[in-house]
Simulated assay, not measured.
Amino acid sequence: MTEALPEIQTEDTGSKGRYFLRGPAGAEAEMTFSKAGDQMIIIDHTEVPDAFRGQGAGLRLVTRAVEDARAAGKKIIPLCPFANAQFRRHPEWADVLKS
């Protein structure tokens, strides 16, 4: 049985922000983004430490950004190689992908 991951938290500093999971011993998996105007975010970095490897933490972070963007009517530019790969694997996210 896989141990449940902690809840995804967010931080928003105005022009930038991040989604993150805080785990045991202070380990954090995070996905950072920048805002490009009011209707677009740029996912620029995803980092998953060893404490979270193999648990789907990175995918959960990107999925949460997609859900939030969809709810807010925003588009995403996935500059981060990991996020970009996830968008290629999930064609159902095309509605939030900035083309």
Rank of each mutant, 00 (worst) to 15 (best):
I8H: 03
G37Y: 07
S34F: 13
E47A: 14
R88Y: 06
D50V: 13
G73L: 06
Y19V: 02
L79V: 12
W93A: 02
E30L: 15
D50L: 06
T10K: 15
P91T: 00
S34K: 10
T2F: 06
R89T: 01
A4V: 09
K74A: 09
W93L: 07
K16H: 15
A72G: 02
R89A: 14
R60I: 00
G54W: 07
R89G: 01
W93N: 08
A51M: 01
T46I: 04
E47G: 13
G23I: 05
T13Q: 04
G56E: 08
R64K: 14
L97I: 08
R53V: 01
R53T: 02
D38C: 05
V62K: 01
K74I: 00
G54T: 05
Q86V: 07
D50W: 04
S15F: 11
G56V: 04
E67R: 13
R60G: 10
L97G: 09
E28T: 14
E92W: 09
T46Y: 11
A65L: 06
A29I: 06
R89H: 09
G26M: 02
G37C: 07
P6T: 10
P24Q: 15
G56N: 08
A27S: 11
E47K: 12
D68P: 12
H45N: 12
D38F: 04
P6I: 10
I8K: 07
W93K: 09
A57S: 04
G14Q: 11
A69M: 04
K75Y: 05
G23D: 05
M1E: 12
T32A: 09
G26H: 05
M40C: 15
V62A: 03
R88H: 13
K16A: 13
C80P: 12
A27P: 03
R70Q: 05
N84H: 14
V66R: 05
V66A: 03
D12C: 01
G54Q: 08
G73E: 07
E67D: 14
P81L: 00
